[in-house]
């Protein structure tokens, strides 16, 4: 569980930190684009999104351990 929360924190810092520096900007110049979207969206949202998805896939497939969950045996309710 703590790994999951740590991953959340890492991506939060990446996304919000990058966007703070590059998306909240004043000035009338042309907004730079990358692959057709504003560059801050590409590097601050799209790339971390891809990284988070990749991490989730690798983590789920290779690091979450399989456990016997039980067979729904009858339990007592107090």
């Amino acid at each position: 569980m703590w790994i999951v929360f740590g991953v959340w924190a890492v991506f939060c810092i990446w996304v919000v930190g990058y966007c703070k520096l590059n998306a909240f900007v004043d000035g009338g110049g042309e907004v730079p684009l990358t692959l057709g979207m504003p560059s801050w969206v590409f590097w601050g949202v799209a790339v971390p999104w891809l990284a988070a998805t990749t991490f989730s896939i690798v983590f789920a497939l290779f690091f979450i351990q399989d456990h016997e969950l039980g067979d729904g045996e009858a339990g007592e309710v107090a």
Partner: peptide, 16 residues
């Protein structure tokens, strides 16, 4: 895109 960005970790957090 920034508003919804938290969804990038929703499957890991909400299911994992």
């Amino acid at each position: 895109a920034l508003w919804i960005a938290g969804y990038m970790v929703v499957p890991l957090v909400a299911m994992g």
